[in-house]
Amino acid sequence: MTPLLSVAGLEVRYGDLVALSGIDLEVREGQILAVLGANGAGKSTLLKAITGLLPPAAGRISFDAADLARVPAHRRVAAGIAMVPEGRRLFASLTVEENLRVGARAGRPGPWALPSIYGAFPLVAGIRTRRAADLSGGEQQATAIARALMSNPRLVLLDEVSLGLAPVVVKQLYATLPQITAAGTTVVVVEQDVRQALAVADHVHCLLGGRTALRAPAAGVTVADIAAAYFGTAAGQDAA
């Protein structure tokens, strides 16, 4: 079975600075991959490369066995890749419902539409007429996740969902993940909260200074293993 997302030998640069190099990863359909690492490890860069916002300097990203190199960012949504960007990035002057409608623009068929979204996210249903700029952090994040789902993606990339949110809110947001994967959607989460990530993920992929420090099935790793990979205290081993 070919993986839904496959990254091979990926290198991304900001000018002379190498942000990512030699990244290989695969995610099978319906699974959850957690990408972990400290600030500046290259997590967000990896997601931006997958969505096409950053062009890779080398390597190959394929989605459903098709090379994405020539697919611009705004066409990747139609292929089934949706992203919840770091910092939510809602359309501030639009209402919540308008944000969701823009999210549905790719016009992909699937289970997610306004009624099903409102059913799955009662919080979002309650604030549908409010302007995105006037929402709390948790409301914004829930709206951002709902907006990404409106495109009925095959792959959702969640960038730093828990950043700046109260633990109870983070818990609520993660509680919606099973509903997303139940629809067959594959998920990549970039997360600072290691315990939260380990609790939901099938696989973990740790980055350190733009390189892979650890890749392993989530069931087999401990927080101590992750900490070692996080800070580079132990030699990065491939436990998979």
Binding site: A73, R75, M83, F91, S93, V102, G103, R105
Partner: peptide, 17 residues
Amino acid sequence: RVIRATRDDPEAARLMG
């Protein structure tokens, strides 16, 4: 709506297709 969304955040708009 798309014009207003793009005005608010063109990069996020790209992520919406």
